[in-house]
């Protein structure tokens, strides 16, 4: 599966549009991470717990999106975008969406 955030894929042409595919996930961070973050906020530096949380959420959302694309019989997803929203304090939504297409190498 080719995944890009551009509208086209270099070296390929889009032969069929399959429609929009999407995947989302809402994840909460556990209290331990909050405590670690509050300590980190005194001295600065990367909040690895939150970075991991984001990475996990993004992987999950993308997996769901790709599963949909596979179901539609697509071999590529183009113009992938991510949006996030804070549903409630302590939980964040990550939403990935793109257009499922069938691409063919340019002769």
């Amino acid at each position: 599966m080719i995944v890009t955030n551009t509208e086209t894929v270099a070296g390929y042409e889009i032969v069929e549009l399959k429609g929009m595919v999407q995947g989302n996930t809402v994840r909460a961070k556990h209290a331990g991470r909050d405590i670690a973050a509050s300590l980190k906020n005194l001295v600065g530096g990367e909040l690895k717990g939150y970075t991991e949380l984001l990475t996990e959420s993004r992987r999950e959302a993308m997996q769901r999106m790709l599963a949909q694309a596979q179901q539609l019989g697509a071999n590529a997803v183009v113009n992938v975008r991510f949006t996030t929203s804070a549903v409630t304090s302590g939980a964040a939504e990550l939403y990935a969406y793109g257009t499922a297409v069938i691409v063919r190498p340019v002769q």
Partner: peptide
């Protein structure tokens, strides 16, 4: 083939 790359960063402020 081109591929999507994604990265996340969370950096805390200090006091």
């Amino acid at each position: 083939d081109p591929a999507l790359v994604v990265a996340e960063v969370v950096i805390a402020s200090d006091y």
